[in-house]
Amino acid sequence: MTTKQRRPTGREATTGNLREVAAVLDQPDRCIPTRDELVFVFNIVRGYLPSPRMMAFYGGLGALAVLEVIEWPVVAAIGLGAAVARRSSSARTGELVFHHRNQLGVAGRSANTP
Score class of each variant (00 low, 15 high):
Glu71Cys: 12
Phe40Met: 06
Ala76Pro: 04
His99Ala: 14
Arg92His: 03
Gly105Asp: 10
Arg6His: 12
Met1Thr: 11
Pro33Val: 09
Arg86Ala: 01
Asn112Gly: 13
Glu12Cys: 08
Gly105Met: 11
Val45Ala: 07
Glu68Cys: 10
Phe57Gly: 04
Lys4Ser: 07
Val97Tyr: 06
Ala111Cys: 09
Ser89Thr: 12
Arg46Ala: 07
Ala107Cys: 12
Ile32Trp: 06
Asp36Arg: 14
His99Tyr: 06
Arg53Glu: 01
Met55Leu: 08
Ala82Met: 09
Gly79Ala: 03
Lys4Val: 06
Thr113Ala: 10
Pro28Gly: 10
Pro73Cys: 04
Arg86Asp: 01
Phe40Asn: 15
Leu104Trp: 12
Ala22Asp: 03
Glu20Arg: 09
Asp26Cys: 09
Phe40Arg: 14
Val21Ala: 11
Glu95Trp: 02
Ser90Met: 08
Gly60Cys: 05
Gly79Glu: 03
Thr3Asn: 12
Met55Pro: 00
Tyr58Ile: 07
Pro52Asp: 03
Ala76Gln: 13
Arg11His: 15
Gly81Pro: 02
Val39Pro: 05
Gly81Lys: 00
Thr93Gly: 05
Asp29Trp: 08
Leu104Asp: 10
Gly62Lys: 15
Val106Lys: 14
Ala91Ser: 10
Val24His: 05
Arg53His: 01
Pro28Glu: 00
Glu37Gly: 00
Gln5Val: 11
Ala111Arg: 07
Arg11Cys: 10
Pro73Thr: 12
Trp72Lys: 11
Leu25Val: 13
Thr34Pro: 05
Phe40Cys: 09
Val39Thr: 14
Asn102Lys: 12
Val24Phe: 06
Glu95Gly: 14
Leu38Glu: 05
Pro8Tyr: 04
Arg19Pro: 03
Met55Phe: 01
Pro8Met: 01
Gly62Met: 11
Ala56Gly: 02
Ala22Asn: 02
Asn112Thr: 13
Val84Met: 13
Asn102Gln: 08
Ala85Asn: 11
Gln27Glu: 01
Met54Thr: 02
Ala85Val: 03
Ala83Ile: 01
Gln5Thr: 12
Gly62Tyr: 02
Val75Asp: 01
Leu38Ile: 15
Leu80Gly: 04
Pro114Met: 04
Ala65Ser: 11
Asn17Glu: 07
Ile32Cys: 10
Lys4Tyr: 12
Gln103Pro: 00
Gln5Tyr: 09
Leu61Asp: 05
Arg53Pro: 00
Arg53Asp: 01
Val66Tyr: 02
Glu12Phe: 13
Ser88Gly: 06
Val75Trp: 01
Arg46Val: 01
Ser88Gln: 08
Arg53Ala: 08
Glu20Ala: 00
Ala83Gln: 03
Ser110Glu: 15
Gly79Ser: 04
Ala65Arg: 00
Ala65Gly: 02
Pro28Thr: 00
Lys4Ala: 06
Gly79Ile: 01
Ile78Trp: 00
Ala77Thr: 07
Arg101Phe: 08
Leu104Lys: 09
Val39Ser: 10
Thr3Val: 11
Thr9Leu: 08
Val24Lys: 06
Val97Phe: 09
Ile32Gly: 07
Arg109Ser: 12
Glu37Tyr: 02
Ala23Asp: 12
Leu67Gln: 14
Phe40Tyr: 11
Arg101Pro: 02
Leu38Thr: 07
Trp72Ala: 10
Glu68His: 12
Asp26Ala: 09
Asn43Tyr: 11
His99Leu: 10
Leu49Gly: 04
Ala107Pro: 02
Glu95Met: 15
Ala83His: 13
Trp72Gly: 05
Arg30Val: 15
Gly81Glu: 05
